[in-house]
Design a protein around this nucleic acid. Structure first.
Length: 460
RNA sequence: GCCGGCGUAGCUCAGCCUGGCAGAGCGGCGGUCUUUUAAACCGACAGUCGCAGGUUCGAAUCCUGUCGCCGGCACCA
């Protein structure tokens, strides 16, 4: 029973204190990680003493010996404590440690009879006493609810989960690196907004007490980044959290991470190349080959990706001509789920794209693309609308839809219109869902597997 | 919001269909053991069967409600 268990550990803490041992001590400085310590041995028999620190993950007492496994941020290393080496008293204290305790240990690295590279404990220090039992060593932690609610336990027990989040960081770093290299500057724009624009979604609402104003959490980054283009920054990007007040699914978390970038004097053709480059550097960062698979389905991320007009695809898959929202509806129903390999879907209907520039040769369509892989959307981009008169008319059309009950229609943003009345350079803009890209590149089935603390209801 | 599945020891799971003493492995606890690798062996312990109600002589098991998780749909990046 867990209460008894904690009581046992609490009693142990008291015994330690009574013996003059601080169960929450400090000051131990590791000189090596588990992995670098093991590498030190090389072909040798024995090294000089080194210090490592981490969490005890296994303990195998064997009479006058205790084998233990220490896990740190890099990996694991076996420890061997022997009564003959550290003496009766220290040996008893080592044997009294619990799996889950955080300790520091010092001693030479050697190889056991079975060939395991091991630190021979000459001294050790209890740094943090654990009061709770870790999940079982063999089956590990599988309960998906505990894994998400208590991610800290998941990260301790399931090393592969750590590697997913390391990959996530590497992917984002690599994407930033590419953008930085190309002269994009990394900016931060408001999360709390009076008018949640730049996308079609229901926002979260909050309230500022001192101002006595309702505010919204942003649903996209777009409109502020484009204001920066007006201001003279020619290449900007932001990687940040957006919030959408919608249902949850394996592909939707209410807060998620977007990359948006805007590049003056570019158009959506340029952005397609940028997206291809971003996908390639992200895959490399995640150690994922371009010819890969996701959940057992093969996918080839090698550029160039297929490019096809939405209207042509709808004709191909649905056998119909259509325009406007009907075209988009047919696309989503008949085409999107069947696009498995990376495909840039081009030229969306103007009606559903209030921020994109119309095609010069056919103003019923805009210069917009989405990148579809395995039936899912990974990027949305367009040549930006720079005509303030047209922009105001588009907003007014959206406002009319809003007035007739469409809660996701884009709200009027007078300040944004004012900004582009000063003049925004022609530009190509991009939005990418980082979480979904990480899912693809780490082969994780749910967005919750790539978000450290996904949204959950209150515990019962 | 709707539909379906799941919820049993710290962890991983049987048991539920067809009602009859609450089970296993691992972990933890006590012991033996000086080169183990899921160490091995011996021993004792471990439960609000998610929660509430109902049916029944008797409910983990059947029924109803409810909470949580998962999936699908709806909504939607």
């Amino acid at each position: 029973m867990s209460e008894d268990f904690t009581q046992d550990r609490l009693a142990k803490v008291e015994r330690l204190r009574a013996a003059g041992i601080d169960p929450y001590s400090r000051g131990f400085k590791p000189t090596q990680s588990s992995e670098s310590a093991k590498a030190l041995l090389g072909e040798g028999d024995r090294t000089e003493p080194v210090s490592v620190a981490g969490r005890l993950m296994a303990k195998r007492p064997h009479g006058g010996l205790v084998f233990a496994v220490l896990q740190d941020g890099q990996g694991r290393i076996q420890l061997l404590a022997a009564r003959d080496i550290i003496g009766e008293e220290q040996f008893a204290r080592f044997a009294d440690l619990d799996v889950g305790d955080i300790i520091g240990a010092k001693g030479p690295i050697f190889r056991t009879k079975r060939g395991e590279i091991t630190l021979e404990v000459q001294s050790f220090q209890l740094l943090t006493k654990s009061l709770r039992e870790l999940p079982e060593k063999w089956h590990g932690l599988k309960d998906i609810e505990i894994r998400y609610r208590q991610r800290y336990v998941d990260l301790i027990a399931n090393p592969e989960v750590r590697s997913v989040f390391r990959a996530r960081t590497k992917i984002i770093t690599a994407m930033r690196g590419l953008l930085d290299e190309r002269g994009f500057i990394d900016v931060e724009t408001p999360v709390l907004q009076e008018i949640p624009g730049g996308g079609h979604a229901r926002p979260f609402m909050t309230h500022h007490n001192a101002l006595d104003r309702d505010l919204y959490l942003r649903i996209a980054l777009e409109l502020h980044l484009k204001r920066l283009l007006v201001g003279g920054f020619e290449r900007v990007y932001e990687i940040g959290r957006a919030f959408r007040n919608e249902g949850l699914s394996p592909r939707h978390n209410p807060e998620f991470t977007m990359l948006e970038s805007y590049q003056a004097y570019a158009d959506y053709e340029d952005v397609m190349q940028l997206v291809e480059d971003l996908v390639v550097v992200a895959a490399m960062a995640a150690d994922r080959p371009l010819e890969t698979s996701y959940q057992g389905e093969s996918v080839n991320l090698t550029p160039p990706f297929r490019r096809a007009r939405m209207a042509d695809l709808v004709l191909e898959f649905a056998g119909r001509h259509a325009l406007g929202e009907e075209l988009n509806d047919l696309f989503e129903e008949h085409v999107e789920p069947r696009l498995r390999q990376p495909t840039f879907v081009l030229d969306y209907p103007v009606e559903i794209s209030p921020l994109a520039r119309p095609r010069d040769d056919d103003p019923r369509f805009v210069e917009r693309f989405e990148l579809i892989i395995l039936g899912r959307e990974y990027a949305n981009a367009f040549t930006e609308l720079t005509d303030p008169i047209d922009q105001r008319a588009r907003f007014e059309a959206q406002a009319a839809m809003r007035a007739s009950g469409n809660v996701e229609a884009h709200p009027m943003d007078e300040d944004f219109v004012r900004a582009i009345e000063y003049g925004m350079p022609p530009a190509g803009g991009l939005g990418m869902g980082i979480d979904r890209l990480v899912m693809l590149l780490t082969d994780q089935p749910s967005i919750r597997d790539v978000i450290l603390f996904p949204v959950m209801k209150a515990e019962a």
